[in-house]
Each structure stands twice: as C-alpha cells, then as structure tokens.
Design a protein around this nucleic acid. Sequence first.
DNA 1: TATGAATGAGGATTCATTCAT
DNA 2: AATGAATGAATCCTCATTCAT
Lengths: 203, 203, 203, 203
Amino acid sequence: MPNTKKTQASAPSPERRRELLAVAAEVFAAQGYDATTVRRIADEAGLLAGSLYYHFDSKESMLDEILATFLDELWQGYDTVLDAALGPRETIEALVTESFREIDRHRAAVAIYQRENRRLAELPRFRYLAESQSRFEHVWLGTLERGVAERVFRADLDVRLTYRFVRDTVWVAASWYRPGGRHSPEEIARQYLSMVLDGIAVR
Amino acid sequence: MPNTKKTQASAPSPERRRELLAVAAEVFAAQGYDATTVRRIADEAGLLAGSLYYHFDSKESMLDEILATFLDELWQGYDTVLDAALGPRETIEALVTESFREIDRHRAAVAIYQRENRRLAELPRFRYLAESQSRFEHVWLGTLERGVAERVFRADLDVRLTYRFVRDTVWVAASWYRPGGRHSPEEIARQYLSMVLDGIAVR
Amino acid sequence: MPNTKKTQASAPSPERRRELLAVAAEVFAAQGYDATTVRRIADEAGLLAGSLYYHFDSKESMLDEILATFLDELWQGYDTVLDAALGPRETIEALVTESFREIDRHRAAVAIYQRENRRLAELPRFRYLAESQSRFEHVWLGTLERGVAERVFRADLDVRLTYRFVRDTVWVAASWYRPGGRHSPEEIARQYLSMVLDGIAVR
Amino acid sequence: MPNTKKTQASAPSPERRRELLAVAAEVFAAQGYDATTVRRIADEAGLLAGSLYYHFDSKESMLDEILATFLDELWQGYDTVLDAALGPRETIEALVTESFREIDRHRAAVAIYQRENRRLAELPRFRYLAESQSRFEHVWLGTLERGVAERVFRADLDVRLTYRFVRDTVWVAASWYRPGGRHSPEEIARQYLSMVLDGIAVR
DNA sequence: TATGAATGAGGATTCATTCAT
DNA sequence: AATGAATGAATCCTCATTCAT
C-alpha cells in the first residue's frame, strides 16, 4: 500500500485530489480526453475506477479542474507582466518567457488545452475557455499593434497572421517539450524570441 | 470450381469512396477521431451508418485512407521540390510554400494528422506515419544544417529547436486556415517566410 | 466467366439452383448454419450475395431445400428396404447400409442435419424434421424390438439405449466421412454392422 | 509511482464466474454458440448483457473457459485410469466409464465441444482442442491396437474405424443424456460396453 | 441473371457512472 | 476512502435482405 505519506486522520483531502488530477492530466495529454477511460486513470493511480467518484463528480469535472487551474495560474503570470506596463517588444518578450514557464509547470494541461480547446469551448461548462482565448487574443494582438504603431515591429506584415504565428509557435511547444530536458524554459524562450524577432536568415 | 475472388476492399466505386472520405475527414477534423461516431459521418453523408461498411472496412480504415492519401500527395510535392536541388534558403521557401498548398488542399487531413499523429504512430497499421515523420525531419533538418554551413542561416540558434519551430508554425496553420479565405496559400507562405527568415522586429 | 455449360436461353433454371445449393450445403456443413454468411456462400459460388436472392427467398429457404431434398431421398431408400419386409437382423443390416449410402451422397446435408436438427425442429417451417425423426425412431425401435422378441437380438439390453447407440453410430460418421476415401459406403457399413452385431471383443 | 497493476481477468470472484459460466454453458449447449446472444445468457443469469463483461473479456472467453475446464477435468480422470496400467479391455472399460462420468458432470460442455470442436480447433486461441484431440486419439487407438495385439480384440476390424465408432458412440450421448435420469452414468457405461464389446446379436 | 448500393435490425462490446458494503 | 458488482446508454460493426439498373 504505497502513498501513505499523509496524516492518517485526514478527510476528503485536497492533496489526494491534486495527486489524482496530476495522473489524469498526464493520461489525458498522452491519449486525448476521449480516448482516455476513467479506468485507465484509476489503473495508473492505483485504485479502481469507481473509487475516483469519491473524489470527483465526473470525468469531465476532472478535465474542468485541470484546465481551470492551469488558466488561473497562466493569467496570474500574464497579469503580472501586463501590470508592469512595458514597451511592446519587452511585453512580448516577457509574455513568451512566461508562457514557456507555464508550459514547464503545466505541460500536460497545455497539451490538453491545445487538443481539446476548440470542441470544449462550445460547451456551456467550458465557456471560460472561449473567454480566456478572446482575452488572450486581445492582449497579444494589442501588443503587436502597439508595436507596429511605435515602429518597433514591421508594418508590412498582416498583424492577425503574425499573432497566430507567434501564438502557435509558443503553445505547440507543449507537444514536444519535456520538463527537465536539455533546455530550460528561459533558454527556449530566448531562442524563440530571437527567431521571431530577428529571423533565422543571416543579415 | 469457379471462384473469382475479388480484392475485398477495392470493388466499390472509387468516386463514392472519395466523396465519403471527404465527409469523414471533415468530421474527424472538427470533432476529433475518437469523438466522431460512424453514425455522425453517415448522417453527414446522407446514408445509414451500416451502409458505410459497404465501402470501408472500419472507421479506422477511413482514417487510414485519409492520412495515407494526404501523405502520398505531400511527398509527391516535396520530392518535386527536393529534386530541383535548390540552395538552402530557396529550398525552405519552396517547402513552406508547398506545405501551405497542401494545407489548402487537404486541410482536414492535416488537422487530423496534427491531432492524432502521436497516438496513431504507435499502431502497427499506422507505422507509415512515424516513417513519414522521420523522413520529414531528415529533410528539414538537413536543409537547415546545410543553410547554417553555407552561412545562409544564423549559426547561433539551436537547429533542432529551429526545426520544430518552423515545422509547427507551418502545420498548425491547418487548425485555423479556411480555404477560399482572405489569403491564398501562396500569400500566407510569403508572410510566414518573411517572418521566419527576417523576423518581426524592425531592423 | 466460368460455368457456361448450359443453353444460353434458359430461364430460372433448376440446374443453377442445384449447383448453388450444393455450394451452400458444403459451407453450412463446414461452418455451421449460423456462422455461415450469405456472402460467404456467394463468394464460394462466384457471385454477389444479393444475386442469390434471384434464386432463393432466403438463407433459411436454402437450408430448408437442402434438408428436405436429403430427407426425401433418405426415406425413399428406407421405404424400399422396409417394403422388402425382411427379418429384423436383415432389416437392420439393410438400413445401416442404406444410411451409409445416403451419407455418401448427401454428406453435407447429413452433417447439417446432425448439427441443426434439434433447434430447427422447433420452428414451424421445419416441423417435418420432427416428423421424420419420430418416424425414424418408430422404424428402428420397432425393428430392434421385433428382433428381441424373435430372439435375434439380446434381451438384456435397454432397447432405447441400444437404439440411440446404433442411430448415433451411423449418423455421426457424416462428420468424418469423406466420399471417395479409402472405404466405400458398403465397406464401412459392413464393418459397422460387424461391430454392432458381434462386438469388438474376441469370443 | 505507485501502480499496482492487477492481473486483468482474475480479480472478480471465482464463484460468481462459475455460476455465470454454468448458465452460459447451458445456453451454448441448447442453442449453439453462434446462435446464442450475450444478452440471452445475461437474461438467463439475471443481469444485463454489459454486466457480463465485468467478469469476462468476451463471449469467446466464456466458451474458452468452459471448454478448458472440462478438458482439464477429463484428462485428470483419464490420466488416473492410464496410470493404473490395466490390460486393454479393462482400460477401455475404465475410459468409457470415466467418459460417461464426465458427461454426467459436464454435459453442457461436452455438447458444446461436439458441436463446435471442428471449427474452433482452427483458431489459435483454441489450439489446445486440437492437441487434446490428438492425444485422445493416441490413447484410444493405442489401447485398441494393444488389444488386437494381445488377441483381446478382433483382428478383422479396421482399427481406425473402430476407434471412431467407439469415440463417437460415447460422446454423442451428451446430446441426449440428462443428468438425474433413469440411468446412472455407470449403468449407461455398462450397457454401452456390453454392446461394443459383445455386440447386440444373440450368440 | 447478376450487380452495386443501400437498408435496418440486431449483436458484441465499451464505458462513465452508481451504490451498497 | 475504496471495493466489487452492476447498470444502461452508446458505439462499432455484421448481415440478411431489397431493389433499381
């Protein structure tokens, strides 16, 4: 009987929830939400499928909690950056760096988000995904436009296209990024920023 | 004993197959393979679920045919480019342009590929996905390295990282691209190339 | 296009029916009625599943026709034997010999009969199976009882048990008998009769 | 990473399994394996079709377990007989008696075996059926040949034919035998042996 | 006579979920 | 907190059958 790290006398225990959610997130990320069975999660966590329902209402509510937690932390980080009111280029740099840090800490959640976002956003329960996305777009697009206006970014590029380009570039990394690998999040951010800002061609 | 066994899966009209595959691809792309029911495809195509099995062995074989067809055409295009034996920069430009053309023609297939690639590649039936991917990596990475060697591309960037960056950037476009939209594939390619090669920052 | 042995200008053609029924019987015997698909029969016969319905109403009606034809011929043979009004031992000998001849000519039908008899006999359409069986029992049991009464057969054996014993012994042979094999039906009958009548122990 | 993977198919209570298998065997025997629906078994057992899958992997695995259990016990009985190293006649007597005891205890399994043996033996999963059958043939045929050599059995009969005759005679009994009927297995064995060894004709 | 395409009912199986213990 | 057993709805797939050509 592993996992007896905690005080025996604990109740519904949020720690156990977090453990189980971590397992669930990992499996969701690896197989996709639909392809993941509750039993698989339970197997991986070392209990029976039915037992998960002591901790969670449903498979969907696990997904919900995973995504909501991630987005909360993401926006906390973003808001800190935005509150600093830097110039456009510095803002982009800070946002990208922050994003890679989030990928480092919530890799599974980011991967799930990437995969399921579109479909989920249509469900009432997950409306916050759509809201988050539109706020996201607003922040990034706004920063880029400000940059163009201030002649920090090139004016000859389609801003929406550029926005999508930068956005995708950052988040897709979650599909291959492995925490603890060769590059730290900050190192990856630096390389990405260098490419995006200055291009890969020799001048 | 007269017994003119026909090749099981090739009898029914290939035109009808193509129609049905187009429908299936669209639904797979929109909902994800797992979340798509055979009945949904049939509904969309205007026949009953069971009737699909006159044309295809299984839901999986539809997916297979969709992806294989796409990859075939993709590599046909790529090979034409590679046979031209251009310089590194021109090769990258041609490959990117070709890629956006493929996205234009196989948007659904590309979206499915992006979503399901990882999990599918482990199935024996879809081994060709892994093979394609490794050939893909070989081609792109090789071109980038050649470019660095010839001082056409910057030497201070991690080439693997750059490879992933460019690769993802291109293909993720399938998730938002809509054929017949504001930008032609060539126009999008031009913008992407400009960003990737020269960066978005004003020099 | 094989099988053009007949006059081109023929109509619904009973010869074609017979050919197809022979194929069907073979497959039913090999796989069992339920496990046999109409398509399998059609494949084996070199046409498409739907085309069988030009010749037959249903899968069941093929089965019906196969069994009815067999039983008709069987009873024709049996009736000839019975009309000869031989003594009990000679009757048994003649019936057994006749049975092996039927197995020789209708091996597939006999095998099907053995397998499906019980379940089919309950269906209204196949009531004749039950009737045939009861007439069968009447004939054999009667002959055995007559033999016991005439002191030709042993009196210390349970007659019903003996009946089942002899009956099974004969018909189960259909499951391994291959026409054109080492033994002619008459040779097999001779051996079987020798065993059943005189036993295998040395006296 | 705590992950106490349990052996997939052995967790649920073996008693319940046995109950359910008994029901399944009865239905398989009565209707044939193919003609039996999982729902029918479930109905008969008083639960829903899907619930059977908590206990068994598939309909086929139920069949597998039924047959394997039967054959295990059969060979246990046979091996006891063979270990006694009796003379040929006594061996045959003991094997026949043992066989009728097995029919008494596993009537349904024997009936299923008779019906499905041939087709199943070709499936990899049921290879043990073919193996059992060949060992069976080896034992019986060997005993008969020994009997002939020792002049206990007649030399003028084809041994293979005799083998099939005896084998079928015994096992087909499962198709009409009803446990708890007029005759005990031992009584039936005695009658069968008397017929097979000494014949039904008065000497 | 036969084909090609489809129907529609049913069958095995999966799986999220429930609940008494 | 967790188990064991079950539910019931949904899913993929099969197959006998139909029918216009």
